[in-house]
Amino acid sequence: MTALDPTTAQLPAQPKGGTPRSGQHTRLWAALLALPTGWMVAFFLSSMVIVVLLSFGRTQADGQPVFSTRLDNYAQLWDPLYLRLFLRSVSYAVATTAICAVLAYPVAYVVALHGGRRKNLLIAAIVVPFFASYLIRMYAWSALLSDDGLVNSLIVRLHLGGGVQFLNTPYAVIGGLVYGYVVFMILPVYAALERMDTSLIEAGKDLYHGPWRTFWSVTLPATRAGLFGGVLLVFLPALGDFVSAQLLGGPKTFMIGNLIQQQFLEGQNWPLGSAMTVAMMIGLTVIMVGYLRATATRSREAS
């Protein structure tokens, strides 16, 4: 063993009053956190609290919203008209999500497994337009699909029929939603396909014969996480969207988003709008928790 030097051996062997270094460090990180946390509390959390509070409020005779403790707004929501609209919104969002998934798989598959060196370029070609103005793209569809728009004039000119009414139909609204949000499905599915071991697919082809059965029994389970993520990323914004229904639809196809928007910027009934917003968030949370539970169980069973 090491011989102890007598001069140093007498040094006190005890902790040196606390932990100065890590203390200094933790303070730095805490200081970094303070400002953004304060910001989020001031501008995000507090705004959410106000929405919840105002949902119990009322509108004064002069149109001013004031805080109160009434349940009137929620009672008002329990109206067949609103319930139908809520169900319509959910069904549009579900349809949008399903179509996005069906569309995303072949596209992501081709890019991920057959994209070769242009893989990144192709993904960029998908991403770039989606981050370009959603409003302009919705407007473009409304111009293209209008009764005297390009699509209809082509139909007439090619003698395919007497023109089709696209706008103001659920198809147009759902189509707009798909167009608006499909990228949020493609990206996670693409990432999952990228990570997937392609030898699995080959093994599947040997085992199951035929691409369809291989897809169902190999590719889909292997990319489940990406699909689940994409479903969330599409469903959430689609349910709250109001631009697609505003520009491509009409009153018959309005969604919750249009209703809320009306309360705030046209109807000027903010307390009712707040209650609708809270109700939508509650509905969303319930759907999401149910969905997350279901997918979590499914993933556990799979592994």
């Binding site: 956190l33 989020m40 501008f43 959410m48 349910l239 969207d241 707040s274 917003t277």
Partner: peptide, 27 residues
């Protein structure tokens, strides 16, 4: 606390934009 703050800051990503917009207007 750090993890809680982390979760809260991600909330805007999963909140429909219309909700964020309405809330900001009210605030």
């Amino acid at each position: 606390t750090g993890r809680a703050v982390g979760a809260v800051t991600l909330l805007p990503l999963v909140t429909p934009e219309i909700v964020t917009g309405v809330a900001a207007l009210l605030l």
